[in-house]
Design a protein around this nucleic acid. Structure first.
Lengths: 269, 269
DNA sequence: AACCGACGGTTCAATATATGAACCGATTGT
DNA sequence: ACAATCGGTTCATATATTGAACCGTCGGTT
């Protein structure tokens, strides 16, 4: 691991639950020497990627990120392009929706949208989707780079009693996603949340991210499932198009097959 | 220079005018070996800080920045806090306004706001304010860390015919800012732009950034100057307060003295 | 069609650079 | 008064970084 990577890794320890981190805590999180950690933090600080809270001496993310993100948006305005789609999806599903983007071996949360329909909602505050435990993550394993599955199988962290813990269990879940075209996570990340997802694709038809709906388990049933799946297909096509990508033919066929045959019709359209 | 810094430096070469950079161009910009540059780019890419345009193989800023910036905003929502103030300032001044933040030895652009009043406006598209050539930069030199002035004097890059090019000229400009409490840049960065600025402060009363107004030179005169200065004082107090900082007493006194006395002070000193 | 230069990417010996145990002074709780 | 942490610093050691040379490919030129 290069020292550059080690330094950059430090930034990944910040989260909504842990927005500020002291030197010693950072050292523990990174599992590295204090002096090394300190120098890495200094290097990041010089570029404004992190800064120190002058009161507590704790480190937190820095102002340069605002600059860089603005420029990124300007260069590739993905988030704005996805927002309307997930808002519409949240509306028709009446549940919380998410979009995530694949970069390297990591699936990053890009944006989310809550529905006003119910007073109880799924609020999933994560910035990196665990590949084996979330619907979006399963999409990545099913349609992303082949080596992702091996990596995920090597690190099957348990989140709930339902999280797949064996390589076979995960492989079976992934096979189902490959067959149906939809990622499914029934309480594998949060106990009372049922999630469905659909993959997004880049200009080469490669996996680029996922769009997902997280619904409260007690509300979930065949009717809602079908509504969500239909919404996911529309959202995936829309976002993929707006990102300059294209949905491969075989994926569209899978969606049609899953929606056309599998579900009993509640009422004709 | 640490390898971490060398890698991070690569990210600073992206700009609105240069949103994508190929390996060879990046190597030239950084003045480093191609192999080194390549490995650094790889490390940045793994963390999603940059990504490759699959069509052109050029590198551009990556999606992880969106994540990190969002979390930064959540942790320290400075930009949102400053926006209303610079909008109000743009309105009363009828000119383009900017806010910048100090991090390390660099003054970063945080946000800007254009006024609808005139059809011609100042549009200053920079992400890092040169300390010796901009009104905001002079504020940093006047009220920021003492060593900034030495650093700036060692690198007096000329932008226009009016840019201060000698250590004495810069020292004189800084002295004037220290006296008046306002940064002044009359065509030193862009030939036809007159700028005024006021410093912002953190919780310890230390320099934290600047707010500035960039006006078209032909419109500039004593009346507009006074209006802008009054607006700058209000904006600086407002933003500083919203950032959890405090304006030192002596700065407020300087502003009062400058505005209370004669506003038509000739800028030659 | 052969040539050319520039591109992105890779290799490996040489060495410049990162590393961490030990240390410091300040702070906090006992 | 003591012990435990904290953020930060030092310096000999050794490990990770470096860059010249190389490869295959691509577009334009002769």
């Amino acid at each position: 691991m290069s020292s550059v990577s080690k330094a950059l890794e430090l930034m990944t320890f910040f989260s909504g639950a842990r927005p500020e981190i002291g030197l010693s805590e950072m050292r523990r999180l990174a599992g590295r020497d204090k002096a090394t950690t300190y120098r890495h933090l200094q290097a990041l600080q010089v570029f404004g990627l992190i800064e120190q809270n002058p009161e507590t001496k704790n480190y937190r993310l820095g102002p340069a990120l605002l600059q860089l993100a603005q420029l990124r948006e300007q260069t590739v305005p993905r988030k704005a392009a996805a927002r309307t789609a997930i808002q519409r999806l949240a509306e028709v599903a009446g549940e919380t929706t998410h979009v995530s983007v694949m970069s390297g071996n990591t699936l990053y949360a890009l944006d989310s949208c809550e529905s006003e329909k119910h007073s109880t909602r799924a609020i999933i505050d994560i910035s990196i989707f665990p590949l084996h435990a979330t619907a979006s993550g399963l999409c990545a394993l099913a349609f992303g780079a082949p080596d992702l599955l091996e990596m995920a199988q090597a690190d099957l962290k348990p989140f709930t009693a339902s999280t797949p813990l064996t390589q076979d269990a995960l492989a079976a879940a992934v096979a189902d996603v490959r067959r149906s075209g939809f990622g499914k996570s029934f309480g594998t990340f949060e106990a009372d949340i049922h999630s469905l997802s659909a993959p997004l694709f880049d200009q080469d038809g490669h996996f680029a991210g996922a769009v997902s709906v997280a619904s409260v388990a007690t509300r979930f049933g065949p009717t809602l499932e079908r509504t969500i799946m239909q919404g996911l297909v529309a959202a995936s096509k829309d976002i993929t198009k707006n990102w300059g990508g294209r949905v491969p033919q075989d994926i569209e066929h899978k969606w049609e097959a899953t929606l056309g045959g599998h579900t009993e019709m509640e009422h004709a359209t």
